[in-house]
Design a protein around this nucleic acid. Structure first.
Lengths: 116, 116
DNA sequence: TTGCCATATACCGATATGGGAATATGATGG
DNA sequence: CCATCATATTCCCATATCGGTATATGGCAA
């Protein structure tokens, strides 16, 4: 056993939403449950493509499935996004702060130049 | 030119924070600027490892660098996290709602069983 | 059962990634 | 200029990931 390389991924919400298409799927599902082919068509992806992304989302618990006739309806289960929201929220005061700093920095620059 | 495979990544904040170690770096930087080796040691990663993750973070604009003597101080620039927070926030009402649904679902189940 | 529709899997190719080790680049002090 | 400390880059390996195509599986209807 040697290198192991690349840490495990696609196993948590952070990774699941790193994929733009998966974000699109989640966004669409806010409107309600949808069968796979519907999602595929609406998002312009192949049926297998949709299925695969849905699998990832299911494995991390962001969607649930339910059989309905020969279709399978996928529905949103957004609870897994809460920890993400909280983690990112932990930086809220910093992105405002960063703005301020940049602002004063830029203003300082301007002032300095005018004074020259 | 044929397949293209795998969409571009490590080019936006969503991907940058998909890596646990990079999240750790960002979290640490909330306490203030830090030189590379400091981060590496504190987080138990190699110096090249730290440098590489910092590069990604720099490329997506989540950190800024500043030379200080022979060191390079990395500082947080959290502004890029704002869109992420907003995107995830767009699901806030759904993760509460999901809870409710599950709740009523579970209660329905219980009731049904009792009635049998 | 047989066929048909909807979805899931398997397989493949191209490439992105993360980690380790070695090395290059940069800045500083003497 | 030289030696040294701090950091960045390069190479290499193993593997994860995405997309496409082909195929398997599941459910339903006649």
């Amino acid at each position: 056993m040697a290198a192991m390389a690349r840490a495990a991924t696609t196993s948590d919400a952070f990774n699941a939403i790193a994929e733009p298409q998966r974000r699109d799927i989640l966004a669409l599902l806010r409107a309600g449950e949808r069968p796979v082919s519907d999602l595929a068509e609406e998002l312009g992806m192949s049926q297998p493509g949709a299925s695969k992304h849905l699998r990832v989302l299911r494995e991390v618990g962001l969607v649930r499935v339910r059989g309905a006739g020969k279709q399978r309806l996928y529905g949103l289960d957004a609870r897994g996004l809460r920890p993400v929201h909280e983690w990112v929220g932990g930086f809220e005061r910093f992105w405002n702060e960063s703005f301020d700093r940049l602002d004063t920095y830029v203003q300082d620059l301007k002032r300095t130049r005018q004074e020259e």
